[in-house]
């Protein structure tokens, strides 16, 4: 059995989480493979919630599998697809099945996914969602009704250290911290000075919150340029693009993994924040290589 994440947050110096992306469809074999490969190598595994607004096997289903396989799941919940009733109901289901870590997110826009004609919900925003989980933890639903059996979720959220402009993002982030979270998993970050400033800002508001830097390996100069153009809040610096550009095609994934591992080492050695959250969706099987190169295995 994995150690409860809330314990890890309290005791471990350098925390490592990773993300698994559920498949589109009912065949869970690959997902299980990824879970089995990673569950004992990281402190907890996030399961994404219709990531990229693409309809998939649900995060709560993937979390149940993580639990069954003996891992420690973090349930990602976005505000995009469910109204307040549906979100609360899903949280009750998750908790009743032993899933007690939740990551509160806004969610990508419907437009970027594979059902762009769907009605976007956003009945709540991520700050309100954090408040909602606290409500359930206190034994009441959002309407103030008493629950037959309350929840006890360990609550986390996201942050964007590289947003431009950063000020409006920081105001929102401050509200999330004030709403009460135990951990933060940031958006992908490559510029560690930006990360430092972000952590400093957070510490002033809440000196106990554990901050895990988002690590996404970049595996080609094209991908880096694409991310800089199209993935909001992410900025891949020129030195990474140059490194990848001069690497022969065959060695690029390795190079990307190396760079990611280098960032992780630096974060750990300099104590910039409390850990890392590794996102390598579609290439989950290579996450152990990153861990190994970063000296985390």
């Amino acid at each position: 059995m994995a150690r409860p994440f809330r314990e890890t947050l309290k005791t471990k110096d350098f925390i490592v989480t990773a993300e698994v992306g559920p498949q589109k469809g009912t065949d869970t074999s690959k997902l299980i493979e990824h879970i089995d490969l990673l569950k004992d190598k990281v402190d907890a595994l996030n399961a994404t919630d219709n990531q990229g607004s693409v309809m998939r096997y649900p995060s709560v289903g993937a979390c149940m599998l993580i639990k069954e396989r003996g891992g420690e799941p973090i349930l990602q919940v976005t505000c995009r697809d469910r109204n307040r009733l549906a979100i609360q109901a899903d949280l009750l289901l998750a908790y009743s099945r032993g899933i007690d870590n939740v990551l509160c997110l806004t969610g990508d826009s419907i437009d970027v996914g594979d059902h762009p004609e769907a009605k976007p919900v956003f009945d709540l925003d991520s700050v309100q969602l954090i408040h909602l989980v606290h409500n359930l933890n206190s034994g009441r639903d959002m309407a103030g009704n008493e629950l037959e059996g309350k929840t006890d979720f360990c609550i986390g959220t996201t942050g964007t250290p590289s947003a431009d402009p950063i000020e409006p993002q920081l105001i929102k982030f401050k509200k999330k911290l004030k709403a009460g979270v135990s951990f933060v998993q940031t958006q992908a970050v490559y510029d560690l000075d930006q990360l430092k400033r972000f952590v400093e800002f957070a510490r002033k508001i809440d000196d106990k919150v554990r901050i895990l830097a988002g690590i996404v390996p970049v595996i080609s100069a094209r991908m880096a340029e694409y991310m800089n153009e199209n993935v909001p809040g992410v900025f891949v610096p020129q030195w990474i693009i140059d490194e990848l550009a001069k690497t022969p095609k065959k060695g690029r994934i390795k190079k990307g993994i190396e760079i990611a591992a280098g960032l992780i080492r630096q974060i750990k050695e300099e104590g910039i924040c409390d850990g890392v959250h590794i996102m390598f969706i579609g290439r989950e099987e290579r996450i152990p290589e990153i861990l190994e190169a970063a000296g985390l295995l």
């Binding site: 505000c79 806004t106 990508d108 826009s109 925003d125 947003a163 431009d164 402009p165 958006q187």
Partner: peptide, 21 residues
């Protein structure tokens, strides 16, 4: 706001302050 958010921007704001969508 394309998502009708009430407590500040989503993480999707593009460089220069444009909307994700």
């Amino acid at each position: 706001c394309a998502k009708g958010l009430l407590n500040g921007p989503c993480g999707g704001t593009r460089r220069g302050g444009k909307c994700e969508i």
